[in-house]
Amino acid sequence: MHGRVKVRTSEEQQLLKQKEQQKKLIAYRLGMKQILQSRKPDSYDPECLGICAQLLIINPDIYTLWNYRKEVVLLEIKTSNKDEDGEEKLCTFLENELKLTEQCLLANPKSYSSWHHRYWVLVHHPKANWKKEFDLCTKYLSMDDRNFHCWDYRRLILNKVGISLEDEIKFSTDRININFSNYSSWHYRSTILNQENLHDELKLVQNALFTDPADSSAWFYLRWVLSHSNVLKEDKEELLGSLEQLLELEPNCKWIVIAKCWLMKNIYENTDNSIQNQVNCYTRLKELDKMREGYYLDCQKTVVDDSETKE
C-alpha cells in the first residue's frame, strides 16, 4: 500500500451524499410550507419569493412554484402601473426572473416549466429584447441541438424578431450539415421552409438518404416533402430512379422499399403496372421487416382494394 494516497471509498462518498440529501429534503419541506402559507391574492412576501427561487434552482419542475411566481409578476405589473418610474422597476424585476430561468435551465435544460416561464416573462416585459433571446438560442443549439425545447422556443421567438426566413433556412442547413440524424432539426426546417422550391430540398434529403439509408429521420422528412402537391413530377421520377440505384447498393434496407411505395402511389396513381410494383414491394417488405408483417399485409390489401373500387 505504499505510495497510495488515502482516498474516499465509494461507500463513504455515498453516505455523505445521503446525508446531504436528507438536509435538502428538510429544507425543501420547510420552504414549501412557508411559501404556500404566505400566498395571498393582493400582496406577497419578498422573503418567500427568495426561498422560492432557491427551491426552483434545485428542482425547476415544481410548477406550483412557477405559478406562484407568475402571480407575483402580475402583482408587480399592477403596482408598476400606478408608479411614475414603475416601468423601470418592473424591468429590473423581470430581468431577475429571466436570470432565474437561466439558472434553472443550466440545472435542467429540458425543464418544460422553466422554458415556459421564460417566454411568459418576456411577453409581459415592456422592453423585451427578443434579438438577444434569439442569439441565445443560436448559441444554445450549437452546443446541444438535440433539445427540442430550444427548437420550439426558437420558433416562438422567430415571430417576434425580424429574421428573414432565408437566413433561418441557412441556419437550419448549417445545423443539419453538422448532424442530420435529428428529428428536431428536420422538423424545424419543415416549419420555416418556402414550399415553392422543393427541388433543392429533395436534393438535400437525398444526400442524407445516401449517406446513411438506415437513419429514419431523413426518410420521415422525405415523406413530408413528398406530401406537397407542388413537387414536380420529373423530380419525383428522378428520385425514384436514384432510389433504384440505392436499392442495388443496399438491397436489405427497408426504408428504400417503403419510399418507393410512397413515390409510385404518388406519381402513377393506380396504373396496373404501378399496382403490381407496389404489391411486389410490400411482399419484399414482409420479408425484410418481419415485426411489421401485418401492417404491410394491410397496406398491400388497401392498394389492391383501391384499384378494384376505381375500376
Binding site: N177, N179, N207, F210, T211, P213
Partner: peptide, 19 residues
C-alpha cells in the same frame, strides 16, 4: 458522416460507396 453528407465534391452514389 456529417462531412460525407455535406460534401459537394462527391456524388450521392459516391457518398453511399464511401460510407
Amino acid at each position: 458522416r456529417s462531412d460525407v453528407f455535406s460534401s459537394t465534391k462527391v456524388s450521392v452514389i459516391e457518398k453511399r460507396m464511401l460510407m
